[in-house]
């Protein structure tokens, strides 16, 4: 049990180090890509090249991903300061959310089916 806990903690520390490296790359190069995206690409590259084996990060990663929704809660609580905006512009915001979901739903589905069907006929 203790060994398993230590293993998961160690893996999360490793993921944190990769995240930190991603942030440093963003800071040092000044590129406008979030550090977490660079970190993700970095981990993908490390896994792909075999420098990091899947077992080194898998358990820690699945724990974090399983509870990812938890991290959203503190951000969503920030809404309590934005009541006025929602009150004043509620209808437009609702429209933007609904149409901004329905239209891309259709676009992705349609485009993928079009290309995918093309694949099959070849």
């Amino acid at each position: 049990m203790l060994v398993k806990v230590l293993k998961v903690v160690g893996q999360i520390i490793l993921l944190w180090i990769i995240y930190w490296l991603g942030n440093q790359i963003t800071l040092l190069t000044g590129i406008k890509i979030p550090g977490n995206v660079i970190g993700m690409a970095l981990l993908f590259g490390l896994l792909f090249s075999g420098l990091i084996k899947l077992e080194y990060v898998e358990d820690g990663a699945s724990l974090l991903l399983k509870h990812m929704l938890f991290f959203f809660v503190p951000y969503a609580v920030g809404l309590m300061n934005w009541g006025e905006v929602f009150y004043n512009y509620g209808l437009i915001l609702a429209l933007a959310i609904v149409l901004g979901a329905v239209i891309p739903f259709f676009v992705v589905g349609y485009v993928v089916q079009l290309i995918h069907r093309g694949d099959k006929s070849c």
């Binding site: 896994l47 820690g60 974090l64 991290f71």
Partner: peptide
């Protein structure tokens, strides 16, 4: 509480891989 969100995002590379 959101300290671990960064590493959690990096972890998205795992299912992708």
């Amino acid at each position: 509480m959101t300290f671990l969100l960064g590493p959690a995002t990096v972890a998205l590379a795992v299912p992708l891989y």
